[in-house]
Structure formats: structure tokens, C-alpha cells
Simulated assay, not measured.
Amino acid sequence: MSGQPKGWEAIRAEVLRRIRARDWAPGEAIPNEADLAAEFGCARATVNRALRDLAAAGVLERRRKAGTRVALHPVRKATLDIPVTRAEVEARGQSYSFRLLQSEMALPPVPVALKLGLAPGSRLLHLRTLHLADGKPFLHEDRWLNPAALPQPLPDFAAISANEWLVTHVAYTSGDIAFSAENASDAEAAILGLPKGTALFVTERSTWSEAQPITAVRLAHAPGYRLHTLV
């Protein structure tokens, strides 16, 4: 496979073949993403997509700073890919647009800094974005980005949303995600055009590369949002 670019599905199939052939035994660490990308002649993000899919299926075990291993006892897991908001809106048959409300380098609040394990005084890129469906508020995205973990130069986030750019350009090896029902803050209610205290579906997510945090984001969905996943 070396020397020829491959799609993530082909890489997934080859990794699975090696596991089934016991080239990589249960419990054994597999090569890192950079080495696999060099072998397969593709972008690291493509390898990351293939390995994430196998991890979601329970074939691989991935841990931040510990690498990726063949699962000792493969199990079927629920899968949850990070969605592209534009694609979500368009899949509903609606027209997508977005507005960048804020973009600045700033000190993150303490909960964000602690979640990402940042050194005191670390500054991140703070973006607030309103996503719209047929011109109406669909999602408020409050995101903190670690420039040190991102390819440079950064794009114009007024032209492409941070959500879409990250999903298509930045590979991650681990993360965490939490879902909750919360009353809209005064600011969220104003941005989403809702009465104060309206109940919202909220997603909070952070992602990491092998060595450092990439982003922490809070997504406040307008009423009517539905989450889909696979089992």
C-alpha cells in the first residue's frame, strides 16, 4: 500500500486484515498515526479516521498518551462521529449559513483551562459562532482553540466555520463528550432568539492530539434538535 494515497475505508480494511491475520496480536500496540500515514502515503487525518472507526467498533483501544492497541476482548460500542453542522442542516432540507460573532486571543475561564490541562497564563483563540438553518438560529457554538495544536496558517473563520475546518483538517486521538439539558443563559437566549430560561440540548466536547489539547467547545442547540448515533 505504500506510496499510494488511500481512502480511510481502505486503510481500515488493511488494519483489520492485519489484526485478523495476527500481524498485530490482541493487546499489542500498533504503529502510531504518523508512521502509518507515511506507510500508506496519505494524510494523518485519513489514518485517524480509520482508527477511530475501528476503536468505535471495539476492535482497537485508544488512550491519550498511551497510543493505540488491539483490543484484548473486542466489543461492539456505540459510535459518535463529530458532525459537520452544515451537513446536519442540509440533511434536514434547509439552507445553511453561519455568523462569526467573536474571534480573539484570550485567557480561557478556569474550568476550560483545567479541562484542557493548560499551564497558567496560556492564551487560546476564542470563537463564538451562530449557525443558522433557513436563516433562523440553529446552534450557538462557544469554542476555545489551541493554536499550538493546529496546522498553520489558520483559515478565516468568518469564511469557514471552525467546526467544519476542524473535522476536515485536524486529526484527534482522544476526547470526551457530555450531554445535558440546561436552561439558556441570558446571552444564549438573546443569541438564539428565545425566551430567557428556555430549555436547551447542550453538548460539551473536548478533543486531544497525542500530546496536547486541540479544542473545548460548548454547543447550545435550539429547541427541536435531535441527536443520531449508531449502535
Score class of each variant (00 low, 15 high):
residue 130 L to H: 11
residue 17 R to N: 12
residue 224 G to A: 15
residue 1 M to P: 09
residue 114 L to H: 13
residue 1 M to D: 03
residue 50 A to K: 04
residue 55 A to N: 04
residue 34 A to K: 15
residue 162 A to I: 08
residue 29 A to C: 05
residue 67 G to E: 03
residue 185 S to D: 08
residue 116 L to V: 05
residue 70 V to N: 00
residue 173 T to C: 04
residue 133 A to V: 12
residue 153 P to A: 06
residue 152 Q to W: 09
residue 195 P to K: 13
residue 206 S to V: 08
residue 164 E to I: 01
residue 195 P to E: 10
residue 117 G to W: 10
residue 40 F to C: 06
residue 49 R to G: 00
residue 43 A to M: 08
residue 107 L to N: 04
residue 48 N to K: 09
residue 176 D to V: 06
residue 45 A to D: 11
residue 183 N to C: 07
residue 226 R to V: 15
residue 81 D to I: 04
residue 128 R to H: 02
residue 51 L to I: 08
residue 18 R to L: 12
residue 42 C to W: 05
residue 207 T to I: 14
residue 125 L to V: 05
residue 219 L to K: 04
residue 138 F to A: 14
residue 72 L to Q: 12
residue 131 H to K: 08
residue 221 H to I: 11
residue 148 A to G: 05
residue 231 V to F: 07
residue 227 L to A: 09
residue 162 A to G: 15
residue 99 R to Q: 14
residue 198 T to V: 04
residue 210 E to P: 02
residue 153 P to C: 05
residue 132 L to S: 13
residue 155 P to T: 09
residue 40 F to E: 01
residue 230 L to E: 15
residue 225 Y to F: 15
residue 68 T to Q: 02
residue 195 P to W: 01
residue 54 L to N: 01
residue 48 N to L: 10
residue 59 V to T: 06
residue 207 T to Y: 01
residue 152 Q to A: 14
residue 133 A to P: 09
residue 117 G to N: 12
residue 89 V to N: 03
residue 140 H to F: 14
residue 40 F to S: 00
residue 62 R to M: 13
residue 214 I to K: 06
residue 180 S to M: 09
residue 85 T to I: 13
residue 223 P to M: 09
residue 118 L to M: 10
residue 67 G to P: 11
residue 150 L to D: 01
residue 7 G to I: 08
residue 159 A to D: 11
residue 221 H to V: 09
residue 36 L to Y: 00
residue 211 A to W: 11
residue 5 P to I: 05
residue 141 E to A: 11
residue 102 Q to C: 07
residue 47 V to Q: 02
residue 157 F to D: 04
residue 123 R to T: 11
residue 73 H to K: 13
residue 182 E to A: 14
residue 50 A to G: 07
residue 152 Q to Y: 03
residue 195 P to V: 06
residue 46 T to N: 11
residue 83 P to M: 08
residue 10 A to I: 02
residue 32 N to M: 07
residue 117 G to P: 03
residue 46 T to S: 11
residue 57 A to G: 01
residue 112 V to E: 00
residue 213 P to H: 07
residue 56 A to K: 04
residue 108 P to D: 13
residue 51 L to W: 02
residue 159 A to W: 11
residue 196 K to I: 03
residue 143 R to K: 09
residue 209 S to W: 08
residue 160 I to F: 01
residue 143 R to A: 14
residue 200 L to F: 04
residue 226 R to E: 12
residue 103 S to F: 06
residue 26 P to R: 10
residue 151 P to V: 12
residue 149 A to L: 08
residue 193 G to F: 08
residue 213 P to N: 12
residue 183 N to D: 08
residue 75 V to P: 00
residue 124 L to K: 03
residue 125 L to Y: 03
residue 100 L to W: 02
residue 217 V to M: 04
residue 90 E to T: 15
residue 212 Q to N: 03
residue 172 Y to S: 12
residue 68 T to K: 07
residue 32 N to I: 05
residue 18 R to H: 14
residue 48 N to G: 13
residue 224 G to Q: 10
residue 25 A to M: 12
residue 139 L to N: 10
residue 57 A to T: 01
residue 127 L to A: 04
residue 5 P to K: 07
residue 198 T to K: 09
residue 80 L to D: 05
